[in-house]
């Protein structure tokens, strides 16, 4: 179900190209300025817990096994087995064939299962295959679907095709939330990021997500800044709120807190909840836990005291 119907590809093209251009130097400077904020003591403790509750704990490897997914689910529900006060994460993100395992493992925890779909990560497959992938994930119990856009079509200027695909996948999702991955590392410019954000939101995305994590660069602060501006402006224009999820390349607590500052200063505190902002990552969780323990015990911790994945 799309939020609006597309009158013609030409209209969409005119709209996207009518969006104001992004001042790249300005965006980079603004992101760097916000990243220099110092967050300490109680504010830091609160930020760490908030960041943990926003993590989409992810495993997207060809070598994933049911056992690994179960281990990840156990960690999602109880990130630090020795400390029950650590909040649980927002969701577990897996490939569509692992959804069933994850759903079973997470039963009763209140943690959602997100599944990547639509020929992740490249998106190079016929539409029918993408839709079948999506339906299978939803049928297996995925509460959230992370789809990839067709970057080839987007860069070639075929916005109509990208739009129609998102609409079709949104339709196949049913009640599941749809996150649309823009793969900003392949979009080359911030102007493209802004256009792709608006395109995805107009086609019905519940979330816009930076990257698959398979391409470098993955999430960066300037890209996330542009996307946060887009969701803010979109809500002002239409009244509908869309979430944002940077994914990939977020490895340290410092990185995570930089993103939280960026959200607060760009989109505003309305987005500062796991319902509207997520961090797609896996390794960052251990760093968050280590920092949390450092605040609790007063001594630096080490990776030996936390699970590997």
């Amino acid at each position: 179900m799309s939020t609006e119907t597309l009158n013609s590809a030409a209209d969409l093209r005119a709209f996207l190209h009518g969006l104001p251009g992004v001042d790249q130097v300005g965006a980079e400077e603004r992101a760097a300025r916000l990243a220099s904020r110092s967050i300490k003591t109680t504010a830091k403790a609160a930020a760490i817990d908030l960041a943990i509750s926003m993590v989409d704990l992810t495993t997207l490897e060809g070598a994933d096994t049911a056992g690994k997914v179960r281990a990840l689910c156990a960690k999602a529900a109880r990130p630090d087995p020795s400390d029950a006060s650590v909040p649980k994460v927002a969701a577990v993100c897996v490939y569509s064939d692992m959804v069933e395992v994850a759903v079973t493992s997470l039963a009763g925890t209140g943690i959602g299962v997100a599944s990547v779909a639509t020929a992740f990560p490249s998106g190079r497959a016929p539409l029918e295959a993408k839709l079948a992938d999506t339906r299978a994930a939803v049928a297996a119990g995925a509460a959230e679907i992370d789809m990839v856009i067709d970057r080839g079509a987007f860069l070639a200027g075929d916005y109509g095709k990208v739009f129609e695909e998102i609409v079709a996948v949104k339709d196949a999702c049913g009640s599941a939330h749809l996150k649309v991955i823009l793969e900003t590392g392949e979009l080359a410019t911030l102007d493209h990021v802004r256009r792709a954000s608006w395109l995805a939101m107009r086609a019905g995305a519940d979330f816009i997500k930076t990257s698959t994590g398979k391409i470098s660069p993955a999430a960066t602060l300037p890209v996330t800044l542009v996307m946060l501006e887009a969701v803010r402006d979109y809500r002002t224009a239409t009244g509908r709120q869309v979430g944002v999820k940077p994914a990939g390349g977020i490895r340290t607590t410092k990185d995570a807190i930089k993103y939280l500052v960026l959200v607060n200063e760009t989109a505003g505190p309305d987005w500062l909840t796991p319902d509207w902002f997520r961090l797609g990552a896996s390794s960052v969780l251990n760093d968050l836990l280590m920092q949390r323990r450092k605040l609790a015990t007063g001594v630096y911790s080490g990776p030996d005291y936390f699970t590997l994945d």
């Binding site: 007063g298 001594v299 630096y300 911790s301 080490g302 990776p303 030996d304 005291y305």
Partner: peptide
């Protein structure tokens, strides 16, 4: 003291 207490040393 920070090195002596560091759990990864």
């Amino acid at each position: 003291p920070w090195l002596a207490s560091h759990m990864d040393v």
